[in-house]
Measured scan of single mutants.
Amino acid sequence: GQVHVGDTTYHFPNPEEARKFAEKAAKENNLQVTQHGNTFKVE
């Protein structure tokens, strides 16, 4: 799974890890998570 936060892309071998990371980043920054397959975008 990939997580895009601003201009930075994080790669995770496990989509579940990617999702947890995205949700945590979104919560900390008052942002939203959008999911496209195994790619998550925090914005």
Rank of each mutant, 00 (worst) to 15 (best):
E23L: 08
D7S: 12
K41R: 13
A18Q: 01
H11E: 08
P13K: 11
H4K: 13
K20Q: 13
G1L: 05
Q2V: 15
N29S: 11
A26S: 05
E17K: 05
T39P: 01
T34F: 12
K27R: 13
V3T: 02
R19K: 11
N14W: 03
V5I: 15
N14Q: 04
F21Q: 02
E16V: 09
V33H: 02
V42H: 03
F12N: 02
G1F: 15
Y10L: 07
A26M: 03
L31T: 08
T34Y: 10
G37C: 14
F21P: 01
Y10N: 03
N29W: 12
A25R: 09
H4W: 13
T9P: 03
V5P: 00
A25W: 15
V3A: 04
T8W: 12
N30K: 09
G37A: 04
Q32D: 06
L31N: 05
T34N: 06
Q35A: 07
N30E: 06
K24F: 11
T39W: 08
E28G: 07
Q32M: 13
E43V: 11
H36V: 14
K20L: 12
E23S: 05
T9N: 05
G6H: 09
N14F: 05
T8Q: 14
P13N: 12
Q32G: 07
E43C: 13
A26P: 00
E28F: 09
N30P: 01
H11W: 14
F40H: 04
K24P: 00
G1H: 12
Q2T: 15
E23C: 14
A25T: 14
A26V: 02
E17I: 08
Q35E: 06
N38D: 07
V42M: 03
E28I: 11
T9A: 06
T39S: 13
F40Q: 04
Q32F: 12
N30H: 12
V42S: 02
V5S: 03
A25V: 15
E23Y: 12
F40G: 05
N14A: 04
T39H: 15
D7P: 07
Q32H: 12
R19Y: 06
T34I: 12
L31E: 05
T8E: 13
K24D: 09
T34G: 03
E23W: 08
K24E: 11
G37V: 01
K20I: 13
Q35I: 07
P15I: 15
N30D: 10
K41H: 15
N38F: 04
K27M: 11
Y10W: 06
L31I: 04
V3K: 00
F21W: 08
D7C: 14
K20Y: 07
H36Q: 11
N29G: 13
A26I: 01
R19F: 07
Q2R: 13
E43S: 12
K24G: 06
E28R: 11
F12G: 02
F21E: 02
N29I: 06
K41Y: 15
V42N: 02
T9M: 12
P13W: 06
F40M: 05
E16S: 08
H36P: 01
P13H: 08
A25K: 13
H11A: 06
N30I: 04
A22I: 02
T39Y: 11
N38I: 04
K24V: 08
E23T: 06
P15H: 10
A26T: 02
T8F: 14
A18D: 01
A18T: 01
P13S: 13
K41F: 15
Q32T: 14
V33T: 03
G1T: 09
F12E: 03
V3F: 02
E23K: 04
V42Q: 00
N29K: 12
Y10S: 03
A26L: 01
N14C: 08
T34S: 10
E16Q: 09
N38Q: 04
G6W: 10
G1Q: 04
T8I: 14
G1V: 11
K24L: 11
N38W: 02
T8D: 10
K24I: 11
P13G: 09
F12Q: 03
T8R: 15
G37D: 07
E43I: 11
R19V: 03
F12K: 01
F40E: 04
E28P: 06
H4V: 15
G37Q: 04
P15W: 14
F12I: 00
F12A: 01
T39G: 07
T34P: 00
H4S: 10
T39N: 11
A25N: 06
E17G: 05
N38L: 04
K20F: 07
T34Q: 06
T39A: 10
V3S: 00
G6N: 09
T9S: 06
A22D: 02
V33W: 10
A18C: 07
L31H: 08
G6Q: 05
K27Q: 11
G37E: 06
V5H: 07
E16D: 11
A25I: 15
T39K: 07
H36Y: 13
E28D: 12
V33K: 01
N29M: 15
E43K: 05
N29L: 15
A22M: 00
H11F: 15
V5Y: 13
V5G: 02
A25L: 15
Q35N: 05
F40V: 09
F21A: 03
Q2G: 03
K24S: 10
G6C: 13
E23I: 09
D7H: 13
P15N: 08
G6V: 04
F21T: 02
Y10V: 05
Y10F: 11
K24Q: 12
F12S: 01
Q32E: 09
E16F: 07
Q2S: 13
V3Q: 00
H11Q: 08
Q35C: 07
Q35S: 06
E16I: 08
E28Q: 12
K41I: 15
Q32V: 14
G6K: 06
A22H: 00
N14M: 04
Q35F: 04
G37P: 00
K20G: 05
Q32K: 14
N30Y: 06
N30S: 09
T39E: 13
A22K: 00
F12H: 01
E28T: 08
A26E: 02
E16R: 06
Q2M: 14
V42A: 02
E23F: 11
